[in-house]
Amino acid sequence: MTTENKALIVIDVQRGFDKPVWGPRNNPGAEANIKALVDAYQERGLPIVLVHHDSVKPGSSLRPGQEGNHFKPELDGVRADLVFGKKVNSAFHGDVDLDGWLKTRGITSFVLAGIQTNFCCETTARVGGNLGYDVTFALDATFTFDLAGPDGSVLTADELSKATATNLHGGGFATVTSTKEILGRL
């Protein structure tokens, strides 16, 4: 794995996701793994992209101007090469042309980490894969929350993460791996 053309994209690591309204979450070690990836990329001078969700829903803790819209402490002091907001799931449909930004820098692959595993992270990985990027999905550097389906049954956050890993791997959108594996290849 060459690192010159591999960026780290960190999705929606925002304080608003600490609110109890989201319900039970998985992977309590996600923030530590996100920080480990950010620190490693920063130490090596590799490109880091930070994305934040700017909710348009009234009352959302992720709305701009709310404390919950701010990044979590694990991202304090990060030297990011690009920071931007989005109002939908995919970072490729945000306030910046991420595809254009990556291509003008010759970046052909990226590692993805952040919140929520099965929404913004999975969607960004799928779109990235569709656009031809070599996507590495750091599953243990993501987390999500339990979620009810249309019939009222609930899938746990762990079940949703497993489904995301299966979708991305089985669909050929991304290589799903661990933070330790990624750091070992840097």
Score class of each variant (00 low, 15 high):
141 A>D: 05
111 V>T: 08
16 G>Q: 00
134 D>H: 13
114 G>E: 06
137 F>D: 09
38 V>P: 05
25 R>S: 15
34 I>V: 14
22 W>S: 00
21 V>R: 15
109 S>P: 00
52 H>R: 15
90 S>K: 08
123 T>F: 08
113 A>D: 00
43 E>M: 13
15 R>L: 11
15 R>T: 09
61 S>Q: 07
76 D>C: 06
45 G>F: 13
24 P>R: 15
96 V>P: 09
84 F>Q: 03
74 E>T: 11
38 V>D: 07
26 N>E: 06
114 G>N: 01
87 K>E: 06
111 V>R: 06
46 L>V: 11
118 N>T: 08
24 P>W: 11
139 L>I: 11
7 A>R: 07
41 Y>G: 00
65 G>K: 04
93 H>T: 03
68 G>R: 01
134 D>W: 03
64 P>S: 00
57 K>P: 01
52 H>L: 12
98 L>P: 04
142 T>C: 15
7 A>S: 10
16 G>R: 03
94 G>Q: 02
69 N>D: 06
55 S>Q: 05
25 R>Q: 14
65 G>I: 03
134 D>M: 03
125 A>F: 04
90 S>V: 04
125 A>K: 02
49 V>L: 02
125 A>R: 05
151 D>N: 10
106 G>H: 12
69 N>H: 14
131 L>F: 13
59 G>M: 08
141 A>S: 05
115 I>P: 01
24 P>N: 14
111 V>S: 07
15 R>E: 11
39 D>Q: 12
129 G>P: 10
74 E>D: 10
109 S>E: 13
102 L>V: 07
38 V>C: 10
73 P>R: 04
113 A>F: 01
110 F>T: 04
36 A>Q: 01
120 C>W: 10
142 T>N: 14
48 I>D: 06
20 P>I: 00
52 H>N: 14
145 F>T: 01
118 N>Q: 13
82 L>Q: 08
82 L>V: 07
88 V>R: 07
127 V>W: 10
10 V>Y: 02
48 I>S: 03
100 G>A: 04
120 C>S: 15
19 K>W: 02
66 Q>H: 13
115 I>W: 10
148 A>Y: 00
119 F>K: 14
135 V>A: 01
66 Q>F: 11
24 P>K: 15
29 G>A: 15
58 P>D: 14
87 K>M: 08
116 Q>H: 12
29 G>S: 15
143 F>I: 00
32 A>T: 11
83 V>D: 13
69 N>T: 02
40 A>Q: 08
52 H>M: 11
104 T>S: 14
85 G>M: 00
11 I>E: 11
102 L>T: 03
80 A>S: 04
114 G>R: 00
31 E>N: 14
72 K>V: 04
70 H>N: 14
102 L>C: 04
11 I>H: 02
30 A>M: 08
135 V>C: 02
53 H>F: 10
115 I>E: 09
77 G>D: 10
49 V>K: 01
118 N>W: 08
77 G>N: 12
24 P>Y: 11
104 T>V: 15
29 G>L: 13
67 E>R: 08
136 T>W: 10
